[in-house]
Design a protein around this nucleic acid. Structure first.
Lengths: 232, 232
DNA sequence: CGGCTCCTTGACATCGCTCAAGTGTAGTGG
DNA sequence: CCACTACACTTGAGCGATGTCAAGGAGCCG
């Protein structure tokens, strides 16, 4: 296995949306590994663009450490973040030969790159690898559909509640979250504006549901309340 | 291959949201077939619930004729339709052993059922089947992420424009659409209310972009304008 | 013709957005 | 260590797109 350090492409000038903090602790849930496929390990700085929309899909990526956002843009700059990939998560695994969304490092990240062609060849030989590729994709689809329900039908309060609940689950803590992403990223993930995110967080704090130790460090005073807000 | 006619489960009492019209003409784009896997063919009446949320995932379904909606519900009845499955499309192919969404027949439908276990077994033997299963899932993921961008960041006008543009593409016509679904279904697909859907359609008609022959039969006067509204 | 639905339209309310300050907070250089 | 800068975040005021509530029209079927 090779190792490399790179800065990749530089940040697009418009991206006044970088994040600014600590890498979250190791996560409890780690996706299954794509069998014996080795890959290149890559370290990237926060803000690096990993793939751009419509880039040829050369690699499948697995996050080793750090957080990556996958997003789509409208021509006027409106942005929708489809998912945050954290330790163990895969991204860049798609049907078409080009990426359908951009991927950017929110924190400094360590990635494992798997050649797309090699992965497909291996999947053709080994049913277990094929099954894992499919499962990774199917879980992404499930998550995306749950996210669509949130975007289309939940209120701002429910969106923030669901988000905090989701992050707590992913970080494996019941009562404490470290947010690696900015308010702007949260807004673009939830289909809100940055102001509404901020106001709604404040509202949850006033209600005693959470405590904002710092803007990126959140204590969950009443996790059950967040679970209720995120419930279907 | 067996054939059967059934009425399946009856419509939940709350579902005052049935659709009421003609099956669209055959579609131009037909998804690849899952190899040699035969299955049961099933005819269902409009309104039939094909699978409920959290039902055990026994089958993978392919639509032969008609239209199916996949949707998720919040406990208070708010609904989000994730996708409409039309001739050739698959649904019910998921990572978990239970369905993540309900599927309901919008029109009378003909379905091909493929036993989930049998499909996975076949995929374990035949890499081409495995690849097809993955591709179907990956395309669903891609569609779901484009849909998330629409739900999170587009205006009502852009949502309706994108929807009409999408339907025109799927039906293979440039200037005419037959909508198999109700205004309520469209609203639940786009994250709007039925009134906003109706008003926005009227607005597009006043602007000369479309012509509502009947509420379900739409002529596209300026397809380029719809393409512009749906553009990224 | 009567009774359903489905759809459209109007009047009004409201949630979340826009615009605009103002307040941290981290990083940098003297 | 402090001053300065640059972001990131919060808060307020006002507005507007979309939702809510209510009524009426249109098509379909018995």
């Amino acid at each position: 296995m090779q190792t490399a350090v790179a800065t990749a492409r530089s940040i697009p000038p418009d991206a006044s949306r970088r994040s600014a903090q600590v890498i979250p602790a190791a996560h409890r849930f780690v996706a299954p590994d794509v069998g014996s496929l080795t890959g290149i390990t890559l370290h990237l700085d926060r803000g690096a663009e990993i793939v751009a929309e419509e880039d040829p899909a050369e690699y499948i990526y697995q996050v080793v450490e750090g957080t990556v956002r996958s997003c789509k843009l409208l021509s006027d700059g409106r942005r929708q973040i489809g998912s945050f990939a954290m330790a163990g998560d895969y991204f860049g695994l798609e049907a078409r030969a080009t990426h359908g969304y951009a991927a950017e490092a929110i924190t400094d990240v360590t990635l494992r790159l798997i050649n797309r062609g090699a992965a497909f060849t291996a999947a053709g030989r080994d049913p277990e690898i094929a099954r894992t590729l499919w499962e990774v994709t199917a879980k992404g689809l499930d998550a995306s559909q749950r996210h669509a329900l949130l975007l289309g039908r939940k209120t701002a309060l429910e969106k923030i509640g669901s988000f905090l609940h989701e992050m707590a689950g992913r970080q494996g803590h019941d009562d404490e979250i470290e947010l690696p992403m900015s308010r702007q990223d949260i807004a673009d993930y939830l289909g809100l504006t940055i102001e509404t995110v901020s106001r709604t967080m404040t509202q949850l704090e006033s209600a005693g549901t959470i405590c904002l130790e710092t803007s990126r460090h959140v204590l969950l005073r009443r996790p059950a309340e967040l679970a209720r807000l995120s419930r279907c």
